Simulated assay, not measured.
Amino acid sequence: MSDETPICSAKGCRADAVWVLAWNNPKIHTPERRKTWLACEEHREHLSQFLGVRGMLKDTVPLADWEAPEG
Rank of each mutant, 00 (worst) to 15 (best):
D59Y: 07
K27P: 00
A68G: 05
R34H: 04
L57M: 10
T60F: 01
P62G: 06
A64C: 02
P31D: 14
E70V: 11
R54M: 12
P62Q: 07
L47V: 03
E32C: 03
F50N: 12
P31Q: 07
Q49A: 14
P62C: 05
L57R: 10
I28N: 11
Q49K: 13
K35M: 09
L38A: 08
V61M: 14
L51H: 13
P69F: 09
L51S: 13
I28C: 12
H46A: 06
R54Y: 06
E42L: 04
K35P: 04
T36V: 08
E67F: 00
S48E: 11
D59F: 05
M56E: 09
L38M: 14
L51G: 09
R44P: 03
A64T: 04
K27I: 05
G55Q: 13
G52M: 09
T60N: 05
L38P: 01
C40M: 06
D65M: 02
A64K: 05
R33I: 05
E32Y: 07
E42C: 02
L47C: 09
V53T: 13
K27R: 15
E42H: 04
P69K: 15
R44L: 03
P69V: 08
K27L: 14
L47W: 04
T30A: 15
H43A: 01
L38K: 09
H43I: 00
L47D: 07
H46W: 05
G55I: 01
D59S: 10
T60V: 10
A39C: 11
E32M: 06
H29S: 12
K58M: 06
W37F: 12
C40K: 03
S48N: 10
L63I: 06
R33A: 12
T36Q: 12
I28Q: 14
H43C: 01
E45S: 01
V61A: 00
G55D: 15
H43P: 01
W37Q: 10
H29T: 11
E70P: 04
F50S: 13
E67N: 02
T36Y: 11
H46V: 02
R44E: 07
W37A: 04
P31S: 09
M56Q: 08
C40D: 08
T60G: 01
R44A: 01
D59N: 10
T60W: 02
H29A: 14
P31N: 12
G55K: 00
A39E: 11
E70D: 12
E42Q: 08
